[in-house]
């Protein structure tokens, strides 16, 4: 009884607010909307002069976001989806739910990226992060890593976005030889975790010498903890890119607000929050530049990235290779 009253209360409150101002709903991943993520600042700035109520709805991580979109189809309340990456955009485009954004390509990506449906808001390189006090000379590429006795912890590509990124990284770098590379890596892998958090936690606890994360991870330790012992190991094959994108839904009931938000993504106010809340590189660097700690990070000479179609086609076979090499 009390529950249904509470529910009714919730619904009334929602309805009442909706009458006041138009609501713009942005579907995104969990870590974007927490108090440590970019959403609180972005919401405050955008609401200052949009005359609207900007609402973030969170749905797990990037892959869960995709699943949510596929479940809801054209019945979704979302106006904008923010947080897919290029390994998911082919699938997202195939739903036919997205409308062209009409924005110019973002200027500050390490390689050209132009997609009529999705605009990038941040990006980063996958990289193995290590502790300089525990590992003096990290391996220089996957081959050296496979031959060494350095212990790594990685994420499962079936349940984690970075895990899938690593799968595509090895595939993009080694093509048909990816299976051999995985076989050589098998004895280096301490364990495979369901998500990024568990892996990173294990690494910090000293369970492994290196962890699959982002080249920007060390910046967190410098800025938030004044800890300069974490570094990303530059790999000779080049580093696989993760480009995170936003798209606007064709069926949005607030098309103008949605377009306005899509353009706002590239404003200094939005982009300026990215480095120290999402710990990624902004797609359009704000005039203030990057935090100092970002200047100290590795800057790989070569970026690897499969096109959305290639990534979509490669992940099934690459997963089978990965499983065969590791499931001994």
């Amino acid at each position: 009884m009390r529950l249904s009253l509470m529910l009714a209360g919730f619904l009334c409150a929602t309805a009442a607010q909706a009458q006041d101002k138009p609501v713009l709903t942005v579907l995104t991943y969990d870590s974007f909307v927490t108090e440590w993520g970019p959403a609180p600042i972005i919401e405050e700035v955008f609401e200052r002069d949009c005359g609207c109520d900007l609402r973030f709805v969170a749905a797990g991580d990037g892959a869960a976001l995709m699943a949510r979109l596929l479940l809801e189809g054209d019945k979704t309340d979302a106006d904008v989806v923010l947080g897919l990456d290029t390994s998911l955009t082919a699938q997202a485009a195939a739903t036919g739910l997205f409308a062209p954004h009409g924005l110019a390509p973002a200027p500050d990506l390490p390689m050209a990226y132009d997609d009529a449906l999705f605009t990038p808001y941040d990006w980063g390189w996958f990289a193995f992060v290590y502790d300089t006090t525990r590992l003096a000379t990290p391996p220089k590429d996957f081959i050296e890593l496979g031959a060494s006795d350095v212990k790594i912890v990685i994420q499962d590509p079936r349940s984690s976005t970075p895990g899938l990124g690593l799968l595509l990284w090895v595939k993009a770098a080694y093509g048909d030889r990816a299976g051999e590379v995985w076989a050589a890596l098998a004895d280096n892998i301490v364990t495979v975790t369901p998500g990024w958090s568990e892996a990173y936690g294990l690494f910090l606890e000293g369970e492994a010498d290196m962890v699959l994360s982002y080249s920007t991870s060390p910046a967190y330790h410098v800025i938030a903890e004044a800890d300069v012992t974490k570094e990303a190991a530059p790999f000779g094959e080049g580093h696989y890119l993760q480009i995170e994108v936003a798209g606007r839904l064709a069926a949005s009931d607030q098309p103008e607000l949605a377009d306005r938000f899509m353009a706002f993504i590239h404003s200094p106010a939005f982009q300026g929050t990215i480095p120290e809340t999402n710990w990624m590189y902004p797609a359009t660097t704000s005039p203030a530049g990057l935090p100092l700690a970002f200047e100290w990070l590795i800057w790989p000479e070569k970026s690897l990235l499969m096109s959305p179609q290639e990534a979509q086609a490669a992940r099934g076979p690459a997963l089978a290779e990965w499983r065969a090499a590791l499931a001994r």
Partner: peptide, 25 residues
């Protein structure tokens, strides 16, 4: 099972469900 299993040899049904939902939809 996943964290301590050490790799895909320790795949449980629940992980297979996870994969079916999220990886393959």
């Amino acid at each position: 099972a996943l964290t301590l299993g050490g790799g895909p040899a320790a795949t449980t049904i629940e992980l297979a469900i996870y994969q079916a939902f999220r990886f393959d939809f």
